[in-house]
Amino acid sequence: MEDFLLRVVPGLAEQWRGSTPEEIGQIEVLAGRPLPPFYRWFLSRMGQSMGPLTYQRLDLSARRVLTSYAEELIVPHSRFLFIGHDSDERMPLHLFYDLDSPERADARVTRRYAEGGERYEQFETFRELLAYGALLNFRIGKLPQVCKALIRGNDPDILSHLDPVMDSLGFTRPVPTGPCCGLYERHDAAMVCNKVPRNRPEAVMVFKLAGNDPGTLRRIMGEISTASSLKIKVSEWTPPLE
């Protein structure tokens, strides 16, 4: 994960700043249990500043976490650990760890209001949330042509059918992921796909595929459709095709 972020995000090594061991220890006390190992790594590298990875409305800093608890914006909970403050004034859906849903040295992340209520599941792991955003913003967002589409299969495990095709097309998978998130890179293209983690997963994912021209993207999608049982329905081209 660290190698991937340092390669994809320009200037990250010079601008990220980690939390102090004392801050990490204070957050662990609030969690009431050992922190997920990946979150501990994140805090040690980016707990003070995420540099170019900083989200526009979401403050993931250790200081914001500790301040929110100290000011009683967030009430400590044995299951949900507050890790990100949403500054949206109308619908502030803050980011929480679901510590009762551990996964791959990490845990599920969800969004909800400070006082509780309905949860909006995000990713199986915080690692996937960060890696998805980095690839989307710093690779896909820099390529000239983007396609957004739905990909459907006969069973919920979409990636078991998609991965072999992407491997055959020369894509690499820079960060290990679970069945609800896929990340793919090639010198001339990149792709992210995801779906909401649920107990009963759907047999569909949303993806964004970017490359140098529409022809490249059509060939990639054509190979996925012909070499697997997956079906693709394009919803948007950016910029629009003539």
Rank of each mutant, 00 (worst) to 15 (best):
S78N: 08
R79F: 15
R79H: 14
F80R: 05
F80E: 00
L81W: 02
F82R: 01
I83H: 02
I83A: 00
G84H: 00
G84V: 02
H85L: 14
H85T: 14
D86K: 01
D86I: 02
D86Y: 02
S87M: 15
D88L: 15
D88E: 12
D88K: 14
D88T: 12
E89G: 14
R90I: 11
M91K: 09
M91A: 08
M91C: 15
P92S: 11
H94M: 12
F96I: 06
Y97T: 00
Y97G: 05
Y97S: 01
Y97H: 05
D98M: 05
L99S: 04
D100Y: 13
D100V: 11
S101T: 15
P102K: 06
P102C: 03
P102G: 01
E103S: 12
E103A: 13
E103R: 10
E103F: 15
A105V: 13
D106Q: 01
A107Y: 00
A107I: 04
R108C: 07
V109M: 01
V109S: 02
V109C: 02
V109E: 01
V109Q: 01
T110P: 00
R111K: 15
R111S: 11
R112S: 12
R112D: 13
R112G: 08
Y113A: 12
A114C: 11
E115P: 13
G116C: 12
G116R: 14
G117K: 07
G117Q: 12
G117C: 04
E118P: 01
E118L: 00
R119T: 03
E121N: 13
Q122I: 12
Q122A: 09
F123K: 05
F123Y: 00
F123Q: 03
F123I: 01
E124M: 15
T125I: 04
R127W: 02
E128N: 08
E128P: 05
E128A: 06
E128W: 05
L129R: 00
L129Q: 05
A131R: 01
G133W: 03
G133T: 06
A134Y: 07
L135C: 09
L135Y: 03
F138Q: 00
R139V: 09
I140L: 15
I140D: 13
I140N: 05
G141R: 00
K142L: 09
K142Y: 11
L143G: 08
L143Q: 06
P144I: 07
P144S: 11
P144W: 05
P144V: 06
P144C: 11
Q145V: 14
Q145S: 11
Q145H: 14
Q145C: 11
V146W: 03
V146S: 08
V146G: 01
C147E: 14
C147S: 15
